[in-house]
Write a protein that binds this DNA or RNA. Structure first.
Lengths: 111, 111
DNA sequence: ACAACATTTATCCGATCGGTTAAATGTTGT
DNA sequence: ACAACATTTAACCGATCGGATAAATGTTGT
């Protein structure tokens, strides 16, 4: 597998993970500290298996790490997984600022 | 509809749009300048209707604007649509840096 | 008017998604 | 050993996804 394909797969996984509001709420919850699956599930109206599957998706994206703690499973946010996504977005925002700048120059030079 | 629901829907749309490699390639193409649907489709091995649907998804996310130009349709990237996504990601990266900082302090103070 | 062209709409297909319930698994405390 | 608990796996459901092809629509040049 080439590096490009790998990076692509990572971006797929991260953006897919963030594309669901339930998963974004889980991320928000974990940003306030690690939690067990049950704790994460508590405020949601959906079943535990559904939460477990969401955690799988977040795990595949590298955003959540799970660690056994007795009969519990501690889930921790790993925000480093956001880096490739942040980089991609920053790139296009830069492009946009450059475009605006060019436009401004154009209007200035040739009014 | 509440503002929160609206913001959520926007994030859904943008992250969903970016979750597909074909759509990311389209965005990359448009970052180098606006293009017609045919021009966008040219480097891809998939059908025109498929491209048209991808442009719909990008359009719903606000990332691509389409404007009739004779019998062509000019597509333009609007990177401002990335703002809410960039903000969300930045928030969690900040959290992460704060967490690392706290950890560093902790190790320092109590080695 | 009409033929060629650019793009979309309609319809269909198999795969994946987000959810469910029921059963299985792993872990703990007594 | 066993009962209670935390979580996952399995199997299923309807909806959506990404793709295809065929037909429709809108636009242009002659």
């Amino acid at each position: 597998m080439s590096r490009a394909a790998t990076a692509d797969a990572r971006l797929d996984a991260v953006f897919t993970a963030l594309a669901d509001p339930t998963r974004r709420r889980i991320v928000a919850r974990l940003a306030r500290g690690s939690a067990t699956v049950g704790e994460i599930a508590e405020p949601f109206a959906i079943s535990l298996p559904a939460i477990s599957k969401h955690l799988d998706v977040l795990g595949r994206a590298g955003l959540v790490q799970r660690e056994r703690e007795g009969r519990f499973q501690r889930c921790t946010l790993d925000a480093r997984a956001l880096d490739p996504a942040a980089e991609l977005i920053a790139r296009y925002r830069d492009f946009w600022e450059d475009a605006l700048e060019r436009l401004a120059r154009y209007v200035e030079d040739d009014p």
